[in-house]
Simulated scan of single mutants.
Amino acid sequence: MKVLVAEYAVASGLEPPIRYEGLAMLSVLVRGFVESGCEVSYLTRGTTLRWGTPIRCDDGRFEQMLRERCREVDAALVIAPDELLAPLTRVVEEECLNLGCPSACVGTCADKLEVFEALKGRVPTCEPWEGEGPWVSKPRFGCASEDVVLGGRRVRGERWKPLRGKSVSMGVVGSRHGVLTLPLTLQRIHYVCDGLGLSDIDAALEHAERGNVVRIEYGGNVVPHPSPMEEDVAQVVREAYGILGCEGYVGMDVVLADEPYIVDVNPRPTTSILGLDVVCTPSVGRLILSAKLPECFGELPERVDVNGQMAFSKEDIPLLLQRLGFTYNFK
């Protein structure tokens, strides 16, 4: 089977650290598909991996190259910023088998207000905020924690109720054939005010209540993360996965408060698959293929085997990939 992986940050030459995160996802998926017996190609501005065949993507030609190459393969998976992912997924759907979420689902998940409307009253989720005190402000459309801040009167944008709790994520992979939740992952979240790091959400809220603006930044992951609430999280994300019509790999961000609250739905692989792929068997790539093509790659297992624990920061990704055997020429 011929498979194309098109990851926007690497193919478009975006600046680090977003390109590092894209490289992590691309590396994991290409290797997983190759080791599952697929003939794999990938779009790139210049970076080359140990596995797969690189296809040079010139400036401004990502969508055109995606369409052209999809016509030459059996299946493809595209990863891109929220506002671009739905139309790019439609390109894949028009030309070959889409290994990711359907474009309609992607369009819904890209809009945080639409996700809230779909999930409210059905699963615990982050809510719009009209009350007093600080709130979380984040773009209605956005990814990678871009422009996500905690503040009050000096903050503009969509307002969301702040939640006190631990930030985690859980990957879900599936299709109409079945759904599998992956081990809970701790998110390393950094709270930064006037260039200074804060210890936790409580300290961040104290600064916000004084009128300061606190940036909320993703810093990396620890997987697996043991928690007595893990099965509760799994139940919530499975329900949300079905409600939203997801397929393939989806990463859901969750805050563990009095119960698990879904705060973001990423209808695509996320950076956390790097850690998951290291500690879990089968590989993430193999799980995606099993979810979408069980007749060729076997059905999804009931659970994955977990061996050890992995922690990483997004700044460490290039060196980490080299250490893990993802040899490449990074440009």
Rank of each mutant, 00 (worst) to 15 (best):
5 V>I: 15
5 V>P: 02
7 E>N: 07
8 Y>M: 10
8 Y>W: 06
10 V>P: 02
14 L>W: 03
14 L>R: 00
15 E>V: 14
16 P>A: 11
21 E>I: 14
24 A>K: 11
27 S>V: 12
31 R>F: 03
32 G>Y: 01
33 F>N: 06
34 V>E: 06
35 E>A: 03
35 E>G: 01
36 S>P: 03
39 E>C: 03
43 L>H: 00
43 L>A: 00
46 G>E: 11
47 T>K: 04
48 T>Q: 02
49 L>G: 03
50 R>Q: 12
51 W>I: 08
52 G>V: 11
62 F>E: 07
70 C>Q: 02
73 V>P: 01
74 D>V: 05
87 P>Y: 13
88 L>M: 15
92 V>E: 06
93 E>M: 06
96 C>M: 10
98 N>H: 15
103 S>N: 07
103 S>E: 05
106 V>F: 04
115 V>W: 07
119 L>A: 03
120 K>P: 08
121 G>W: 08
123 V>H: 10
128 P>Y: 12
131 G>T: 07
131 G>N: 06
132 E>T: 10
133 G>T: 08
134 P>A: 03
135 W>V: 12
137 S>Y: 00
140 R>V: 06
142 G>V: 08
144 A>S: 06
145 S>Q: 00
156 R>Q: 08
157 G>P: 05
172 V>L: 14
181 T>G: 01
185 T>R: 10
186 L>W: 12
188 R>Q: 08
193 C>F: 15
193 C>I: 06
194 D>N: 13
195 G>Y: 15
195 G>K: 14
195 G>D: 10
195 G>R: 15
199 S>Q: 07
206 E>A: 12
207 H>E: 12
209 E>F: 12
213 V>K: 09
216 I>V: 14
217 E>L: 15
218 Y>S: 02
223 V>D: 05
224 P>W: 12
225 H>P: 07
225 H>S: 09
227 S>R: 11
228 P>A: 09
231 E>I: 14
232 D>E: 14
232 D>V: 14
232 D>Y: 15
233 V>H: 13
233 V>G: 07
234 A>R: 13
235 Q>N: 12
235 Q>F: 15
236 V>N: 08
238 R>P: 11
241 Y>W: 04
242 G>H: 12
242 G>P: 07
245 G>I: 07
245 G>P: 13
251 G>K: 13
254 V>E: 02
254 V>Y: 03
255 V>M: 11
255 V>T: 05
256 L>Q: 01
257 A>R: 09
261 Y>D: 02
264 D>G: 06
265 V>I: 11
271 T>F: 02
273 I>S: 04
279 V>Y: 13
280 C>D: 05
281 T>L: 12
282 P>V: 01
285 G>I: 12
287 L>G: 07
291 A>C: 05
291 A>F: 02
293 L>T: 04
300 L>D: 04
301 P>K: 01
308 G>F: 02
310 M>R: 05
312 F>Y: 15
319 L>W: 07
320 L>M: 08
321 L>I: 04
327 T>Y: 14
328 Y>G: 07
329 N>E: 09
